[in-house]
Design a binder for these strands. Structure first.
Lengths: 230, 230
DNA sequence: GAGGTTATTATGTACGTACATAATAACCCT
DNA sequence: AGGGTTATTATGTACGTACATAATAACCTC
């Protein structure tokens, strides 16, 4: 290690974790001691260890020090692109079809997801996203017009609610649930696949502060895979 | 804003992004200017903006400055607990059953996932994880004994490979793919569900440096949902 | 106008001092 | 031994100076 940088400190820490030199369940040297050993500032060690802690590889506690967890809960980062970008990143041509748009009171399970007690009129949107003219995913979305009033006046026949919301309603928090669904007939029809086919689903609710913006269920055509990396 | 901290700077930046004061596609003030405006050190602004950049809300470029992306690719964090912890966190009793364990050459698609050209003997493990004595997920795993020689001598009838590997083979990189599968008969039998039921699947390959450790496919019983948050 | 070189700029980082904060250890009393 | 209080400790952060680095703007030449 010629020049000490936070990256090199981090790499050395990783090496020691991996080699069990810092065994799972055990304490690692204090930041000040590590700084002395490696010949750098304590702030540099602090900076290096932060990412490892965020990734679940270390647990840091004031005064108690830092330890390698016995059972690490690793953290992976998931990219959430807008659907058009997901399709185009696969080298496929994006297409979009608004299937329906209504104002209606949201059903109870959507209210629950939005943490709303009482239903007022919401915007209900059903849309199909296409990749090279093949169905890619079906978007079933409820939007709270209180959070995004402009949507009531927006023409969603040419831009998807998914994309429009990203550009017009920056959310501060989001909940996701990923799962699998055996395609019921109406969804199979929209996605042009067999009834009962296994579909990857994403359910997402987003908020601006405590104000719910939207709740959406995306059903992807059979074969879709969502990638992530650590 | 009484006392300026990196957290308060971050909150103010988020507010400006959300309110469109810093419009999508546009430049935000330079760190030095923001520091002057908010009455803190430039390093404090830098610290505050880093997380926002990592979350996809800002794009930072040396000299060009920092901009709010027109189409942000938001980043979500996924917790990857060991399976036993996932089950226990749901308040359910964990159970485990080793279904089979062999040494065999890996099939081509596993070799491909492991970026291996040539197959040598690998450890093939089939195991069932139970929640309150109901099948929770089926683990189909290939382990490279070159990366983890001790596994050849490890009794996997009482500890799952999933858990044992987390404790004994710290990985440096992992690839994940999430999808959905219509349960073929042999998997439906193991998971005690209907043939053709929609199963949530996780395929994961991990490496220590460039050395592949393991490739696993987890098929979760119908109804499983994986949660994440932004 | 195109291409190459240099100067300038805004983010990225290292350092050391100082202080803040959470939390554990030490100490004291009953 | 148990409980409460205080001192100590290790991480968390702020600041300002200094330097590094990537990249854009300015400038010059053909």
């Amino acid at each position: 290690m010629s020049t000490i940088t936070w990256q090199s400190v981090q790499a050395e820490a990783l090496r020691r974790i991996r080699s069990r030199e810092w065994p799972p369940g055990g304490q690692i040297p204090h930041e000040a001691d590590l700084a002395e050993e490696l010949g750098c500032a304590r702030a540099t060690v602090n900076r290096a260890l932060r990412d490892l802690a965020e990734a679940g590889l270390l647990e840091r506690r004031r005064k108690a020090g830092t330890r390698v967890p016995l059972n690490p809960v690793r953290k992976a980062t998931l990219d959430i692109p807008i659907i058009r970008q997901d399709i185009e990143a696969r080298g496929l041509a994006y297409g979009y079809k608004l299937l329906s748009r209504n104002e209606a009171p949201a059903p109870p399970e959507i209210l629950s997801q939005l943490s709303l007690k009482k239903s007022s009129q919401m915007i209900h949107i059903l849309a199909l996203h296409l990749a090279d003219n093949h169905p890619f995913c079906l978007e079933n979305r409820w939007v709270n017009p209180v959070a995004v009033p402009e949507i009531t006046k927006t023409d969603l026949s040419t831009i998807s609610a998914n994309e429009w919301l990203v550009q017009n309603a920056a959310f501060s928090a989001g909940d996701f649930a990923f799962g699998a669904l055996a395609a019921p007939a109406h969804i199979a029809k929209a996605l042009d696949c067999a009834t009962g086919a296994a579909l990857f689903t994403v359910e997402r609710t987003t908020w601006a502060g405590s104000l719910p913006i939207t709740s959406v269920r995306l059903c992807y055509a059979p074969g879709y895979r969502m990638l992530a990396a650590i």
